[in-house]
Design a protein around this nucleic acid. Structure first.
Lengths: 247, 247
DNA sequence: AACGACCGTTGCTTGATAAGCAACACAGCA
DNA sequence: TGCTGTGTTGCTTATCAAGCAACGGTCGTT
């Protein structure tokens, strides 16, 4: 492993969180400030970072350009965008797109609904695995060894009254999801938020992602939410077909 | 400069363009394949890259997570604020920032000019689509289906003598805007107020927002207003670059 | 005004390591 | 079966990354 590159990657991750000074970065990495300065100077030369007026380092235009280019190149997100925008317009609810990345499910796109309560979900960050509908929709369709590896890392803390409290119960829920073709989150993370989710399946049945519709319990009853399942199913099928997925 | 970090940055830039093999990367960098392999192994350990089934290197989940986080943290308003404050200070005129939200264009920031007449515009409220410069600046650059969907909802009531009175005329105006690179409102909502506006374009040419400069006809002639176009162009370009947009 | 603390920066030294070489394993092809 | 090309690893060593000391600048305090 190349040590200076390791340090530089940590620097980039820290700076992505928030702009920081040389001193704080030196403390975080536990290396000499002149070492950090040299690393930052090289990153700055490439435009990956830049300094603001307060001498704090933040991400630079070359990083943003790479980020844009990378995200624009994502097939699923690009293909799904018009479908999800339409679903959002027709339901006036928040729509999420998520994918499995390693042992986490991560939101990769989001269309806000016309609701006063703003959803906490952040694109790029992992979803709460024990409760999120998109996580269940995906895990219900992955091979058991993959599922079990992921389940080993989930902590069932019982955040709300409806939260799943054990791996065994979670597996039972996944079997229901597989049978029903959709997953739900009935106030398992926030008691006043619920959602329905469905997987996007490839030709061989592998889940390449999942889509969810989220609402507050005050704006929609659970029955009203599940009444949107045909729209959701149509959306995920359209995306699958466009990707060359299910027949 | 730290040489291994320089090489790693070039690797990331190459891999962002398209997934590539060890051999092609080694040729591009003109360094030994074992050197490239060590660099890639370190990047892989951080999740910045990963290998596909054909042993080509492509961007990994950690890179995407950083990319999402970076782009989500970018608030157009935040990025634009110092630029627009400066534009306002230099012109002493009212400066607006607006974005397309669904089928409306909405002001998201505003810097008041030194004029006795206070502009009616309110942050968060939709702009008058048939006349506002920022609306034309944005609609001139969106895909035609999106433009047409928005145009379907605009009512051309002919508020003043200079108001646009038909969809057909509006489309002709948008074509002019696209050609000229800027839009105008020549007293189309209030006979004594006019403005110039320009879009803020992303790397792929999509309008992420627009900026306008507004004045009363008594304080500035139209020629004096259009004389500010270079300042406005510089402001929108600066914002675009900061967002990682145009070259 | 002077002083001290702190941050950022640079020249220099040196021990650590990045870089490349040779050899190997493996896959694909003739 | 043999050859070619790609990816990989152990080893050596020349290069350089890392840290130290000292400096300059800024800010706050007295």
């Amino acid at each position: 492993m190349i040590k200076s590159l390791e340090k530089a990657m940590i620097l980039l991750q820290e700076i992505t969180k928030e702009p920081q000074s040389l001193r704080t970065l030196s403390e975080t990495l536990q290396v000499h400030k002149s070492t950090v300065l040299r690393l930052l100077q090289t990153l700055e030369e490439f435009g990956m970072v830049e300094r603001d007026e307060e001498l704090r380092y933040r991400l630079g235009s070359a990083f943003y350009a790479m980020a844009y280019q990378a995200l624009e190149g994502l097939d699923l997100r690009k293909v799904a965008a018009p479908v999800l925008r339409d679903l959002n317009a027709r339901t006036n609810l928040t729509v999420h797109l998520a994918v499995l990345q390693g042992d986490k499910v991560v939101y990769i796109d989001k269309y806000e609904g016309m609701q006063q309560v703003q959803m906490y979900s952040r694109i790029g960050l992992p979803v709460p695995m024990s409760s999120a509908g998109v996580a269940k929709a995906i895990l219900a369709h992955v091979p058991e060894p993959v599922r079990d590896a992921v389940l080993r890392r989930i902590e069932f803390n019982g955040v709300t009254e409806t939260s799943i409290r054990s791996v065994q119960r979670y597996v039972e829920v996944l079997e229901e999801v597989r049978r029903n073709g959709y997953a739900v989150d009935r106030g398992e993370l926030e008691p006043f938020i619920h959602c329905v989710a469905m997987p996007i399946l490839s030709m061989d049945g592998a889940p390449v992602g999942a889509v969810s519709i989220t609402a507050t319990t005050s704006s929609h009853t659970f029955e009203q939410l599940t009444a949107l399942l045909p729209d959701l199913a149509q959306a995920t099928r359209t995306i699958s077909r466009t990707l060359g997925g299910e027949a």
